[in-house]
Computed example of a mutant assay.
Amino acid sequence: MRVLAAMSGGVDSAVAAARAVDAGHEVVGVHMALSRSRAQHRNGSRGCCSIEDAGDARRAADVLGIPYYVWDLSEEFEETVVADFLSEYEAGRTPNPCVRCNEHIKFSALLDRGLALGFDAVVTGHYAQIVEVPDGAGGTRRELHRAADPAKDQSYVLAVMGAHRLARSMFPLGAAPSKEAVRAEAATRGLSVSAKPDSYDICFVADGDTQGFLRDRLGARPGEVVDADGRVLGQHDGAYSYTVGQRKGLGLTRPAADGRPRYVLEVRPQTNQVVVGPSELLTVDELHADQTVWLADDVPAGEWVDAEVQVRAHGEPVAASVRRARSGRTDGTDGGAEGALEARLSVPLRGIAPGQSLVVYAGTRVLGQSTIVSARRGAALRAV
């Protein structure tokens, strides 16, 4: 097959491209330039897709003996991932930009452009597994599963890709036993990135100051900090700087009457208010979500099914009963986007914010993904 290898400049994508070459595919390496500033430099393990990363990707491609190109996707990245990040915080939600980057850039702009150029698939260095199983009709279907190494599993941020794009994706590192094993393989292959530190945090906020980034882009918007009964407790410079579950940085000068710490319970963009209260009000056991992308067409809609849900990239999955709406398209032309999804948790969770990604699992298999709209305390919790 002719495959397009997404090469970030890191060790994972370099080894993934190398394994695709070993498998006999015709591989072309592509580095995605996502920053509008061509002078942007990497700051240690913060940030990615910098000028240094492009150079590292080129050197890896040279070692592998494959063609290499840089594609400027900075406009698409700014107009989708960064714009979504800002609008979500502005609307009082807490987004996951890695999910949106996979949706709009790596498995939309990159894959769709590659298919248009005659490539058969895209290979990336993500840690997840694609498993082919009989579909009951004489054929097979592709399932997305967790990686063999739980510590590196990235299926949570890949669930949004949809069945159509899953069919054209390859994840050669899914069965890798550990990141250390991948680094050792890179060193054996003579790849200079074998000891390069992993990138983390938000790539376009390279200094790690998310609140500073939001202030620079959205400006000061003073408003009130109130309790659950609407009493004014203090002031803030922008409700977008707060997220559900936050304890520090509330700027309150008066302690609660009972002396206990306060947490952000809700962000209300309509009134520019931040609602704070005691920690027990953060505990929820019912989640409502929308913009569902469903990967498992063999799991029926409209019925409650037993599953597990995960609400953070490195969070622990919890058992739940899940029901998704019957409406929506599943042919993959729109990524499999559907409608509402409900989850009743067997174990309550704390600090769940609108905008977070909710991923549904059956064991290691990813069933689908949805975006949380609201989190509630069900009857059992309200009675406590």
Rank of each mutant, 00 (worst) to 15 (best):
R100P: 00
V122R: 00
R141W: 01
G138W: 00
S155Y: 06
G65Q: 05
G47L: 00
R146L: 13
H25M: 03
F77G: 07
D72V: 13
L34M: 04
D135S: 08
G139V: 01
G139A: 02
E26R: 09
A54V: 10
R93H: 10
L64S: 05
I105T: 11
G92S: 06
V63G: 09
E76M: 12
V99S: 04
E132I: 01
V131R: 05
D22T: 09
K152G: 10
D62A: 14
R38E: 08
F107M: 13
G118F: 07
R142S: 09
V123S: 02
G114M: 07
A33P: 00
P95T: 00
R93N: 12
E76V: 14
L144M: 09
R36I: 10
A151T: 13
G24K: 03
L34V: 03
D22L: 10
Y89D: 10
E52R: 00
G118C: 08
D153R: 06
G114T: 06
C98T: 12
D153I: 07
Q129R: 14
V30D: 01
Y89V: 04
V28G: 02
G118A: 05
A39Q: 12
G139L: 00
R58G: 11
E75V: 13
E75I: 09
C49A: 15
S50L: 10
G136I: 00
G125S: 05
S37D: 15
A83D: 15
S35D: 15
G65C: 03
G29V: 12
A83I: 05
H126G: 01
A18C: 07
D62P: 00
V122G: 01
P134N: 00
H126L: 02
I105F: 08
P97M: 00
D112K: 12
T94N: 12
T80P: 08
H41S: 14
K106T: 04
T124F: 07
G138M: 01
A16D: 01
S35A: 15
C48R: 12
D135A: 02
R46E: 08
G118I: 06
A39L: 14
D12F: 13
D12Q: 09
C49L: 11
A151F: 08
G29S: 06
A33D: 00
S108Q: 13
T80W: 06
P67N: 11
S74G: 03
D56T: 13
D112N: 15
A147M: 10
L115H: 03
L34A: 04
Y69E: 15
C49I: 09
F107N: 03
D84H: 13
N102Q: 12
D153A: 05
S13M: 12
L117E: 15
R59F: 04
Q154C: 05
E76C: 11
V133D: 07
N102F: 14
D135G: 02
G92P: 06
N43E: 14
D62T: 14
H25I: 01
A109M: 06
A151M: 11
R93S: 14
S45I: 03
G125K: 08
V15T: 07
D120C: 04
R38A: 10
H145C: 06
F85L: 11
Q129Y: 01
V63K: 13
